[in-house]
Amino acid sequence: MTRLAMQVVVLVAVSVALGMASNALRPQGIDWSGRDPERFRHPDVEFLEVEAAASLHAVSTTLFLDARAPEAFAAGHVFGAVSLPADNQETAYEELRDFLTPEMTLVVYSDDSMLAVRVAKFLNARGFKAQVLEGGWEAWQDRRLPVE
């Protein structure tokens, strides 16, 4: 039994070493710090670190857009954010378009980065400059940044 356990440990250790080495040698290796995998899938969408987003939050030309469902938005959101649910983005956009200008910096966030990416792409295709908040709502809350 001890021998079996030792062999299991060795096999796992060898696998970990191979995985880390291959990732280090790969030009486009995965970032171990926990970057959202959605960014690998959508290199055309710009992702924004929470710290950078927090700096932008105080700038008047920045607007945070919440891509979650309206119920989640009502339960709590980034201070000053506006709801633009991904599941209903066309309708929500029609209501918002008069307030949006191409000069604005739009920061889209969600619980699921796939939703935020969908909204960001939708807005970028219409001439806006939308970025996705990496880590989304959870990361914003974790850093105790302004919410309402």
Binding site: G19, W32, D36, P37, G135
Partner: peptide
């Protein structure tokens, strides 16, 4: 699968395939 934090996702994605290959 929405079961792991991002750092866990990335670590698993890098290491699990090699474990599968080794065994």
């Amino acid at each position: 699968y929405q079961m792991l934090p991002p750092w866990g996702v990335n670590a698993l994605a890098v290491l699990l395939p090699w474990l599968e290959l080794v065994i």
